[in-house]
Computed example of a mutant assay.
Amino acid sequence: MGPRNALAASNEESTLKLTPEICITGDENQACEIRIELQWRLAKNELVCILSDNNAYPKWCSESPEQHEITMNVSTLSDIHFVLVSKETNQTLAGAKLKITSTSQPQVRRRYRNPWSLF
């Protein structure tokens, strides 16, 4: 019948919510240690897995379609990107990012001019 069916499949999007989204450390060389909560809402109830781009946090998969959140302790020096995928099809459903910010500014950013001068 045409492209209408593709649009009718689902107008509700799956979402992945991360709380909190930002972790502030005192020093850029200091690991951020934080307890985070990942909550997801799905277009259709299904088993999901959560992957991250940090090897310290391997793939986690839900055992029940009724589960919609997990809590984990994280210790990291860099941002972590979490991706929610369908356990059945491995299709990406949603993503969320934990941003790490340090209160100390690196020295390099303060140097606006070259330290040498020809004149």
Rank of each mutant, 00 (worst) to 15 (best):
L38Q: 00
Q39E: 00
Q39C: 03
Q39M: 03
Q39D: 02
W40M: 07
W40A: 11
R41N: 14
L42F: 01
A43V: 12
A43I: 14
A43M: 11
A43Q: 15
A43S: 15
K44L: 07
N45G: 09
N45M: 07
L47Y: 01
L47G: 02
V48E: 00
V48T: 02
V48Y: 01
V48N: 04
V48P: 01
C49I: 07
I50C: 08
L51A: 14
L51V: 12
L51M: 14
L51R: 14
L51G: 10
S52W: 03
S52D: 06
S52R: 01
S52C: 03
D53W: 02
D53V: 04
N54V: 06
N54G: 13
N55R: 13
N55V: 11
N55E: 13
N55I: 10
A56M: 08
A56V: 08
A56Q: 15
A56F: 05
Y57G: 13
Y57T: 10
P58H: 07
K59R: 15
K59Q: 15
K59S: 15
W60C: 00
W60M: 06
W60Q: 05
C61P: 00
C61I: 06
E63L: 14
E63H: 12
E63A: 08
S64P: 02
S64V: 10
S64Y: 06
S64F: 04
P65F: 04
E66Y: 08
Q67M: 13
H68N: 15
H68E: 06
E69L: 10
E69S: 12
E69C: 08
I70K: 02
I70P: 04
I70V: 06
I70W: 00
T71Q: 13
M72P: 13
M72D: 08
N73L: 12
V74D: 10
S75I: 11
S75K: 15
S75C: 08
T76I: 05
T76R: 00
T76A: 05
L77D: 01
L77G: 09
L77Y: 01
L77A: 02
L77C: 02
L77N: 03
D79A: 03
D79I: 02
